[in-house]
Design a binder for these strands. Structure first.
Lengths: 324, 324
DNA sequence: CTGAAAGCGCTTACAG
DNA sequence: CTGAAAGCGCTTACAG
């Protein structure tokens, strides 16, 4: 029996007899033989490996997306190479180069915080390696999976209005990042839809941190006409808001409403518990893999497709004025 | 110029002239040439890939360890294949098989919750693939990185005693898992060191969940002689304890002390904030990679080495009776 | 200092 | 239904 026959038997080639297959498989099992996927990749041109590039795994959001990706990938016979760039442009480029060298069948990526140059991703396109972005996506015509920050923020702001809050402020994330800009625009649109004039004083530019939530809240409270609610673009910042309100002895939600965005691990456990928009992170990972898999199988026809994941409102204590 | 020369020039082979190297490198850059690592792996017998097997990435602990591993791995020229087993034995076996097929240079693994059979890991040893365990380790003579749960728990219990708490209960994790058994024994030893008799009624077997923390606390409070403090093996359970104490209107830390273990994301942000032992997760990942790397480089001489990471106490509000 | 040749372990078109 | 042969793209011992 030749190597060719063994190879065909193990991959269930239709022209091999059932008897031969049985013998080969039994023997392979007995000898604990595991085909060398490196050799098979070299010959077949398919590695069955995808690369996943993320800013950092030390963050529940990305961990959860990874979970969504690897689970599905494994079911479809793919292994996952992971590369963290630590929010550094240089490491992001290095990660892409590693993936290219490894001849991955496709790449799923989320941009580092300070990536402004996309040359490394254009290189990927030039080599016809399927590429999908999620969450932090570039302004390029490349398939991606994003959260519907606009409508989610519209919903949250409307909810605060419906609960009877009158002056609703916004603490944003860095507005040059699309994700946070969308949330700001959703807030803005909800005010307009309710004929509430946008007051520039009620907008504080935060930077995704507890500290900026505290500082923003302090500044907003010192206004001649302070707000009585805040819609905030991210939950760590929301935590800072809750901390500062506690320090300032302002009762949430009776006197002041807070609505976040992300539904982080801790959001359920703050006092009071935080109303927020759940990002459906696992679903996001799954959608990213499904999209990549479709592109790998069908070629680049869906090059400009964009999957929009709807965030789910999670109403907890911090926004329920009407209960009082 | 032949492929051989190009190969040597790109890998800085000492016998190649500086001039040739310069030409080759410039040309490679211009043509955007990236060596095929698949082919080089096949020929050289080294893939420069390590496999990391974890129960789930949807958990801050493992995400953080991954962070520690990938960072160092990348610096040492390794890529990381990741495989989640979702706490399922079958997927754990599948992950190991995938790693073997991919001919990884080494494996870092943490056991699934219900792995009792180690045949797949013995297979790895038989093939002489370097293997390191972390956190959840099997009873095998295989290198590993673990947290010093015994001494950490001793320290925490002693701290509660020093703060003046008199009857200190323990809510454990599943005691058949070494990690949690160590913590129970540390608690036990601290009592003994202080001549406090172990009261079996003060020990509740939890299962790493908010619910078990609440239920355990309820039962402990109903005791004829209820405790006035709890050392708990894990922070989610601690969260349940805090919730139940709030419901039962018992003030922490004045009337009742709570000390956890893990230092999860949320532990800093509970009310009151939770005193706990930090597991140094990133350090754990780094140590695991360093150990693996040493074994890859020096062969299996350190086959029974065990790295013990010291947990760091993080004293917050929930255990500071003396402040009152 | 560089080249020619073999070979890593598979897969696959071609032949029978 | 199975075999013989070529080849994927590198690396490396050997030769010069």
């Amino acid at each position: 029996m030749t190597a060719a026959t063994v190879s065909r038997a193990l991959s269930d080639h239709p022209e091999i007899s059932a008897k031969t297959k049985a013998i080969v498989k039994e023997t392979a099992q007995r000898l604990d033989y595991k085909a060398n996927r490196i050799a098979s990749s070299l010959r077949s041109g398919k590695t069955n490996v995808i690369g996943v590039l993320i800013p950092t795994a030390e963050n529940a959001f990305f961990g959860s997306v990874i979970h969504g990706i690897t689970n599905l990938a494994s079911k479809h016979g793919y292994s996952v190479l992971i590369h963290e760039c630590d929010e550094l442009y240089e490491l992001e480029v290095k990660g892409i180069q590693t993936f290219i060298g490894a001849r991955v069948d496709g790449i799923i990526a989320s941009l580092s915080r300070n990536t402004l140059d996309y040359e490394h991703f254009l290189d990927v396109k030039r080599r016809n390696i399927p590429l999908v972005f999620f969450d932090r996506v570039p302004n390029l015509d490349i398939p991606s999976v994003v959260i519907d920050g606009f409508n989610g923020s519209f919903w949250a702001t409307q909810h605060l209005i419906d609960q009877g809050y009158k002056r609703i402020a916004h603490i944003s994330g860095p507005l040059y990042i699309n994700t946070f800009n969308d949330r700001f625009r959703g807030y803005e649109a909800a005010l307009k839809a309710n004929n509430i004039a946008l007051d520039k004083n009620l907008i504080y530019n935060g930077n995704i941190s507890i500290e900026s939530g505290m500082e923003g809240t302090r500044q907003l409270l010192e206004l001649p006409e302070p707000p009585d609610a805040i819609f905030v673009a991210e939950d760590f910042t929301a935590l800072g808001i809750l901390k500062q309100l506690k320090i300032s002895k302002i009762n949430v939600p009776e006197q002041f409403g807070v609505f976040g965005f992300c539904n982080d691990m801790f959001s359920e456990h703050t006092t009071p518990s935080l109303s927020t928009m759940d990002q459906q992170t696992v679903l996001m990972g799954q959608e990213a893999f499904k999209l990549l898999n479709r592109i790998i199988e069908n070629g680049n026809e869906e090059s400009s497709s964009r999957i929009v994941v709807t965030p789910l409102p999670v109403i907890r204590e911090s926004s329920l004025k009407k209960n009082y």
